[in-house]
């Protein structure tokens, strides 16, 4: 293909390739998840009945199972779910007794706010600390930053969350430890400042997942640039190490850092499930846990589909970011 044409078309070609991948990926992933949910040892009727077990007789249980279509074979249920999905009907959650699509729409905003804040927090901190460590390579700031990265990577998310709650919520009383709004108030009744205050601890908890990898990755890429002939050429003409790292090396490190960070969107989602549970954050993560424990197949499948699309978009953005940062990648097939 003509070089000029390839230059112009790299984005269109990438989008087309990823669209084709999405077409076979979604049904395959859905079939796998549906199989797992079908094989789960949790009885959805039992989970629905819960503590009212004494009040619900076998006939009523059978009626519920019949109404939900649980008596049909798994392939038939899967096909039914797929055909409804194609018509835009995601089904009804048996846990929340509400349409799955409405539930996802209601809760996605809170999750996206949490994941988005954590994403940018981790990127800003991890990237700049990585560049600083590279510029100060071998000196005490470098050792300190690398030590921090190792400690963070070895710290489980739930432990970080407990530590943050005990220090900033219980000990100092600076930040709330629960929910997206103060108790008894809706989001509309809460000021932006108060909502942001509630976001801090969950966002920090989720961001910890990505910070250490970003620090170490950005540092490694910036060090590789600082040792390159291109950096030596700049240094020969007066560029300082800080200038080399933060001004000229940043682009060399940003592309790979964004790639790693965006490709790790799945980890962010996983971290948000944990954080939403600990901090009672009203997002999709919390709903996922309830759907899983309640064998709420429609909700679980709906959330899984939304998560799949989210992670897929993250990976796609990672590919685009890598090509924007490094023009040589645009010509690779």
């Amino acid at each position: 293909m003509d070089l000029q044409l390839m230059r112009r078309n790299w984005l269109a070609r990438l989008l087309l390739e990823r669209l084709i991948r999405l077409i076979w990926l979604v049904p395959l992933a859905m079939a796998g998840l549906f199989t797992l949910v079908s094989l789960a040892p949790v009885d959805p009727v039992q989970a629905y009945v819960g503590a009212r077990v004494a009040q619900v007789g076998p006939e009523q249980r059978a009626a519920i199972a019949e109404a939900w279509g649980l008596n049909a074979p798994a392939p038939e249920r899967f096909w039914l779910w797929l055909s409804h999905l194609a018509a835009g009907d995601f089904g009804t959650s048996i846990t929340y007794n509400a349409p799955v699509l409405d539930l996802i729409a209601q809760r996605a905003g809170a999750s996206l706010a949490l994941i988005g804040t954590a994403f940018f927090l981790a990127l800003a901190l991890g990237f700049s600390l990585g560049l600083l460590a590279a510029a100060m390579r071998g000196r005490w700031p470098d050792r300190l930053i690398r030590g921090l990265a190792v400690v963070l990577s070895a710290s489980p998310g739930f432990w970080i969350a407990i530590l943050l709650i005990s220090v900033f919520a219980v000990g100092l009383g600076w930040l709330p430890a629960c929910c997206a709004t103060p108790p008894g108030l809706t989001a509309a009744e809460t000021s932006l400042g108060a909502r942001l205050t509630h976001l801090i601890l969950p966002a920090v908890t989720v961001s910890v997942v990505g910070i250490s990898a970003l620090i170490l990755h950005s540092r490694a890429r910036a060090v590789a640039f600082l040792e390159s002939p291109a950096a030596r050429h700049l240094a020969a003409h007066g560029a300082s190490r800080l200038r080399l790292a933060f001004r000229y090396g940043a682009r060399h490190a940003l592309g790979p850092a964004l790639t790693v960070h965006l490709a790790g969107a799945g980890e962010l989602v996983g971290g948000s499930v944990l954080a939403e549970t600990i901090f009672a954050w009203p997002g999709l993560g919390q709903a996922t846990v309830r759907a899983a424990t309640g064998a709420d197949a429609p909700l679980l499948l709906g959330i899984a589909l939304a998560t799949l699309l989210f992670v897929f978009c993250g990976n796609l953005l990672a590919d685009i970011a890598a090509r924007l940062a490094d023009p040589r990648l645009r010509e690779m097939r």
Partner: peptide, 12 residues
Amino acid sequence: LAPQGIDALDPL
């Protein structure tokens, strides 16, 4: 200085 290797140019 004009270095000898063309890798002295920033590839990005």
